[in-house]
């Protein structure tokens, strides 16, 4: 966890129970079981996890929408459960379901929300920047998911917040809107906002996040910058694949460890899969050397955050 200046959001040991639930023998269910995280100004902090991992609940406790059952939360130095209008003005929220009235028209709605602030951003600028002008007076219920998402993002920004919560910001976006939204998020980060987002998409976290918390079953199972998490997973026992090209129908002429498999996926192309270590690579090179093979290409598939995620969050996969 970065230790630099006071974080804009600090969550320590958050606990949240829901229920009693009928499908849980009528008992309470602990859906957040001790999440701790910090989010700093000028950074995008991502909560990455599968659906139901507790990401949205964590965000809603930080936004004051749900009362926590344990732990502490400091949002801009205050407790969100006792948020004043002054605190709420400094925090922008984009909910997962948008929270927009279906009968409203985007620009009229944004002007309405802007009226809640003393120094709102220009609605016209936001509308133009997020490409909302094309459907400015179409009712929300007739918009596509991606269009709604952009209106919800504009609504979260109109108050000129210092902290921005985005719950699944890329949901429903086509590739072009996604690029526009991601560019804007990076720009806002560079302008000094503390941005906290949730996502179940590893690609989002990899593209956007300065710091990632991997959440599984109500706990943070790993955290770090994306490169740190990748390094962390390199040392962990994990599947890797090495692909090399050589002449077809090579005989397996060397003793590789039992958990490592060699498969000729097409003539002359071989996939070596398993928890590969440098020693395994040496053994592989020994095989080539012994048989006088010079591969025409060798390629070690690079680790993605997905591998880290799968390695660390065992229970539910995205």
């Amino acid at each position: 966890m970065p230790t630099s200046p006071t974080p804009a959001l600090a969550i320590d040991g958050l606990i949240k129970d829901v229920g009693p639930l009928a499908d849980h023998d009528g008992r309470m269910k602990r859906i957040v079981a001790g999440i701790s995280m910090n989010a700093h100004r000028g950074q995008v902090t991502a909560l990455l996890g599968a659906n139901g991992a507790g990401k949205t609940t964590t965000l809603e406790c930080a936004q004051g929408l749900q009362k926590r059952d344990g732990g502490t939360i400091s949002l801009l130095g205050e407790d969100p459960d006792r948020a004043t209008a002054a605190l709420r003005a400094r925090v922008g929220v984009m909910l997962q379901d948008g929270g927009l009235p279906p009968a409203a028209r985007p620009v009229a709605l944004l002007r309405h929300v802007a009226g809640m602030y003393r120094n709102p951003r220009s609605v016209d600028d936001l509308v133009e920047r997020l490409g909302i002008s094309a459907f400015a007076s179409t009712s929300i219920r007739r918009l596509s998911g991606g269009q709604r998402q952009r209106v919800a993002l504009a609504a979260s920004l109109v108050g000129n917040p210092e902290v921005l919560f985005l719950d699944e910001p890329s949901a429903g976006l086509d590739p072009q809107s996604r690029r526009t939204v991601f560019d804007l998020i990076r720009e806002l980060r560079d302008a000094g906002l503390a941005i906290v987002l949730t996502t179940h998409l590893l690609d989002d976290a990899q593209k956007l996040a300065d710091y990632v918390y991997i959440v599984d079953a109500g706990r943070t199972v790993a955290s770090g910058t994306v490169p740190e998490l990748l390094r962390q997973a390199t040392t962990a026992e994990a599947q890797r694949t090495l692909v090399f090209e050589a002449i077809p129908r090579l005989r397996p002429g060397v003793a590789l460890r039992a958990e490592i498999t060699v498969e000729e996926t097409r003539p002359g192309s071989y996939a070596v899969t398993g928890p590969l270590t440098p020693a395994d690579l040496a053994a592989l090179a020994g095989w080539w050397s012994a048989q006088g093979i010079m591969p025409t290409s060798v390629h070690l598939a690079s680790r993605s955050l997905e591998d880290v995620f799968l390695a660390l969050s065992g229970s539910e996969q995205p």
Partner: peptide, 12 residues
């Protein structure tokens, strides 16, 4: 539709 939740996060 979550409108109450969204508006309650604004200064309103």
């Amino acid at each position: 539709y979550g409108v109450l939740r969204f508006l309650s996060t604004t200064p309103l």
